[in-house]
Design a protein around this nucleic acid. Sequence first.
RNA 1: GGGGGAGUGCCCGAGUGGUUAAAGGGGGCAGACUGUAAAUCUGUUGCGUAAGCUACGUUGGUUCGAAUCCAUCCUCCCCCA
Length: 423
Amino acid sequence: MMNLIEDLQWRGLINQSTDLESLKQHLDSGVCTVYSGFDPTADSLHVGHLVPLLMLKRFQDYGHRPVVLVGGATGMIGDPSFKATERSLNTAQTVQEWTEKLQQQTSQFVRFDDSETSALAVNNYDWTSSLNVIEFLRDIGKHFSVNMMMNRESVKQRLSREDQGISFTEFSYTLLQGLDYKVLNEQHNCTLQIGGSDQWGNIISGVELTRRMNNNQVHALTLPLVTKSDGTKFGKTESGAVWLSANKTSPYAFYQFWLNVEDSKVEEYLKLFTFLSPEVIMGIMAKQQGEPHLRHGQKALANAMTELVHGAEALESAQRITHALFKGNLSDLDSADIAQLKQDGMPYKKLSQSSCTLLQGLVEAEIAPSNNEGRKLIKGNAIALNGDKTTDFEHSLDASNTLHGVHVIKKGKKHWFMLELGK
RNA sequence: GGGGGAGUGCCCGAGUGGUUAAAGGGGGCAGACUGUAAAUCUGUUGCGUAAGCUACGUUGGUUCGAAUCCAUCCUCCCCCA
């Protein structure tokens, strides 16, 4: 049986840390409190946030106490780390709404109970909102050297680029995050902060501040940046980020995201994202080697992630849609299958008219953004209606040519829509 | 406070009076090949069936004609104090 650090190392989950030996000893000495923060920059987290979030759960599983911090205060300021441009501020009300949503969302990944390893949810707004400026500048600001802050790699491009600057607001961000660590150390004896590799500077700010103000030596650990082999950003699809919220990314789309992971990244993602044991992962990858076209790895990944984020039922739904659309024959579906697909979350649109042309259908169902685009798609042989390709944009959609009452339209290779016409 | 520079399509970036719906690259979308993979190749990428319309930070102006010239305002950057 591996210990925590060995497990993390095997999974490739450690990027950078303060002295690893003393961190190991510290973790062996008993229950440690570890925290990670999530700023409300949207009303949901996305797949990229899963790595640190699941990391907290890994710590909890190994007998430590996770603290999930949502940045109600830091979200008001904006983290400049490795950001190319200054960001516009969100209103206080928006930040507060997002904060509440994230608090709910993050809570589902760690365990809350009465034990000493029970998770804790905090909001940094609670201890920063009452600070006054003079106090903050004297007590906190005095511990930060602007010279050092300016040397940070994370703000370098903002300081050196010709056409970009950085406001004092964003520049101060690291003081707030530093303060968080110091407060959590004081109030909850928190001794480890984890975060993405871009957070190293901010975490170190907290380590330093805690040492100076609390006289405690605390630890830092960063996780690797998840990448795709072509260097583009992980976690994006055609339609944007892959969110954890089912309202923003359906469980089916979420499942498909993982199922479509490139071969060369499957093993890495299985290690980073799932809780499958090394033996299981190696077994899956051995099978994958022999029969890559069956994509054992992608399936294991998609199953594990969908179940973890959306639950067993949603996973089954996603699998049902996937099977119906990609494995079977559309004409084999019966009306119950169609109803199930609709309920499972296949994109669906009901139009009020009783008939229309294929082109109108595409545009009204928002499959194509404009008539022009719609024509291009149809002419380009990208549209299949109820399983058959068609290049006729005048093709009529009406009651006579439905598939159990609906029109199933496929755009490109893997985008499916269901259209129902009214009476 | 003084001086200088910049704002172009999803992004980067060329363009300094007409042939510019705007080079090039990236990204997106689609087609071919495959395994719903990767790589590659091809097409396409403001709206409109079309005539045409709307676009180069804002608002005005000069001109037969402006992204290109002038003024105004807004935003950003750099340098000096």
